[in-house]
Amino acid sequence: MLIADFPLFPDQASTMASKVDNLYLFLIALCGTVSVGVFLTIFYFAIKYRRRPDNEIAEDYEPPKILEVTWIVIPSILFLGIFVWASWVYFQLARVPDNSLQIYATAKQWMWKFQHPTGQREINELHVPVNRPIKITMASEDVIHSLYFPAFRTKMDVLPNRYRTMWFQATKTGRYHIFCAEYCGTLHSGMVGWVDVMEPTAYQTWLAGGSEGSLASQGEKLFQKYACNTCHTNDASGRGPVLIGVYGSSVMLSDNTIVPADDNYIRESILNPQAKIVKGFGPPSVMPTFQGQVSEDDLLKLLAFVKSLGSTRTAAPAVASPQSSTTTAAAQTTKEPKKKP
């Protein structure tokens, strides 16, 4: 073992890394002082007041009670401070920047599958440009996994029943670990990979490599393959709601509640159409369930397609302007929504 192979501190390769590390180092300083202090005090007392024949019974001495108040109040104030600091960091980890590059991920026993909006797919390997926020929307095909980038100080469990979103912005080019952090069965420790952080030009070159068309266009093919388009037509004549402009809007349901049409809403409506039925289309909805028929990869493609329908009905399945998603929609209060292919 060479010392060079023996790191004591992980790479700092994202915008969040230094923020997390500052908190960590502060806690080490604070808690280290307290722990060492307690150790030394115990040791000092144990020697200084060790039992001797003339002090068989301890002196009749009670320290002042104000000490109790001191060591209740001071830690409480410190804890409050740490709590606020840590929550501030957590909020930044949770809030995805608007201009993020969207990447989709699927976890399954025991591999990571990544899909780029332009259609490139990779396994256990992820290429991203440096200095650009990356947003990963992900789901699991089987058990719970957890996508972990130690160098970016971020991690999130990947669930089999809904989409979750994480983000990072790499600051240094290079190759960094991807780990699965939630135990997922036999080859859990083999569910690892590498993230390649590249210069933007190198990334563009890489993107130019093979692709089967954009994700949205692949989704459109699936939209026809599953005959979704027979009901979800482009005008109100279909048996299902018009999907144009739905993504990112608010949808009125049959029980008069209003829900946001986000990733998880689209997913649920495909897999479990009865769960949230658009007003005027039931209940019951005439749409069959696609649970067990559409793979997670295909679901993500369908999602990309529905997203690409954006807010105007003229929008052709837009090819991956990676910014997309959150910026679109919104303005239109299209009352008609989705449901049933």
Binding site: V20, I82, A86, S87, V89, L93, A181
Partner: peptide, 13 residues
């Protein structure tokens, strides 16, 4: 350390 939300994300599991 583990109760500190932003730090827990990195060190949990």
């Amino acid at each position: 350390f583990l109760a500190s939300l932003g730090l827990d994300v990195h060190v949990t599991d």
